[in-house]
Every structure is written in structure tokens, then in C-alpha cells.
């Protein structure tokens, strides 16, 4: 089981990215009857979910973790949930969609400590709102970049190229080696993008 944590602030487009990532992983996974290609853990801070309904309607296997944040208040439940999913589905890929209020690094730590599995963080940011969020809550938003394997700068269709470049520069002030990839999750993300993104971090797709 390989684990990907999809992090990023509220409204950054995590679910839209997840839909495409899951579709890619399902298509690329080995045809192994004994395992489920992809299982998703959907974490919602509120008492009921919205994103999980969309994901379930796509035919994906989704386990909900509601009313708490997996990086802090629900970290114990996260461990229990992952333990159950590993036993029940033995998925090739487990994708955890963090709440927009989570520090993905803490989720990664929880998973790695409990299960000793390779865990990568992909942080999604909203190109249009980045500077506003940095101005309003810089420690938190920059904290979501900690230990990320890569950053997907989403919604580049809503800004010009110069803004994208300035967002990348801003992100890399926190970690100058952090790979940043402009995307627009409302259009199809090519398979070769996912292959390159995951190949560089996760061995043996």
C-alpha cells in the first residue's frame, strides 16, 4: 500500500484533483483481483460531507472521516480507519484527502509512524487566492507546504502567467527546492503528468 496525502487550503481544488488522480491510478493499477486499486479517505471537518458524495457517485471506494481533522482531533480515528482499510481492501493506493484546515505533514507522520508505509504529500494551492491567504493566515497556509513532495498550483486558468510565476516564487521562499506544477483541474490532466509526478516520488507505479 502506498499512501498519498492530498493537502491544501479550503477551496484550493483538492477534490477536483483527487477525481483525476483516482481515475489515473485506477486505470494504471495492476489487474490484481485480490486488491482494490484505490481507496480514498475523505476527511471533513464538519458533521456531514459534500465531497464524499461526489466521489462515491464516481464509483470510488470512499471511507468517510467526519467531524474532526485527521491531523489533530481525529488522528486516532485516522489510524483506526487506515488499519481497517488495509485489512479490508488491501489497496494498492490509499489517498487521503485532508480537510482544508489540516497540516498534511502531521497526517503523513501519523501514517508513517503507525504503518511504516511510504507516504507522500501533494499540496494543492489556489493560484488566484494564494496572496490573499498568505496575507491573512501566512503561518497556517505556509505550514501546509511542510514536507510536501510537490505543489500543484491549481486554477491557473483564472490568472495570467506572470501571477503564476510570482506564486511559484512565493511558495519557494518557504522551500526553494519544492517542485511546483501549474495545473487547471477543471480540464483533463494528462496521464504523463501523473506518471512523471508519481514516478519521481513513488517507485513502481
Amino acid at each position: 500500500m502506498k499512501v498519498i496525502v492530498l493537502g491544501g487550503f479550503l477551496g484550493s481544488g483538492k477534490t477536483s484533483v483527487l477525481l483525476q488522480l483516482a481515475e489515473f491510478l485506477v486505470a494504471r493499477s495492476l489487474n490484481n483481483e485480490n486488491t482494490t486499486p484505490v481507496v480514498i479517505v475523505e476527511n471533513e471537518i464538519g458533521g456531514s460531507g459534500v465531497d464524499n458524495l461526489l466521489l462515491e457517485n464516481q464509483g470510488l471506494t470512499v471511507k468517510n472521516l467526519f467531524a474532526g481533522c485527521a491531523c489533530c482531533t481525529s488522528s486516532v480515528q485516522l489510524e483506526d480507519t487506515v488499519s481497517y482499510l488495509k485489512k479490508e481492501f488491501d489497496p494498492q493506493w490509499l489517498v487521503i484527502e485532508a480537510t482544508g484546515l489540516a497540516y498534511p505533514d502531521k497526517i503523513k507522520q501519523t501514517i508513517e509512524d503507525a504503518f511504516l508505509v511510504e507516504t507522500e504529500i501533494i499540496t494543492i494551492i489556489d493560484a488566484k487566492r494564494w496572496f490573499r491567504l498568505i496575507a491573512a493566515m501566512e503561518p497556517f497556509v505556509s505550514g501546509q507546504l511542510e514536507n510536501a513532495s510537490s505543489v500543484l498550483i491549481n486554477k491557473v486558468d483564472t490568472v495570467d502567467e506572470q501571477k503564476v510565476q510570482s506564486v511559484i516564487e512565493s511558495i519557494q521562499t518557504y522551500n526553494k527546492k519544492l517542485p511546483c506544477y501549474p495545473i487547471s483541474a477543471i480540464i483533463k490532466i494528462p496521464d504523463d503528468f501523473w506518471e512523471r509526478l508519481l514516478d519521481q516520488r513513488l517507485i513502481a507505479l
Binding site: 471537518i45 464538519g46 458533521g47 456531514s48 467531524a67 481533522c69 482531533t73 480537510t99 484546515l101 497556517f140
Partner: peptide, 15 residues
């Protein structure tokens, strides 16, 4: 409406 809080966020959910 169910209203909860996390950090400084107000979270409202309903069905």
C-alpha cells in the same frame, strides 16, 4: 444547522 469550530473557522453543515 450544525455549527462547529476549528481553529478560527466557523463550520456550518446541513442536510
Amino acid at each position: 444547522l450544525s455549527i462547529t469550530h476549528h481553529e478560527n473557522a466557523i463550520i456550518i453543515s446541513a442536510e
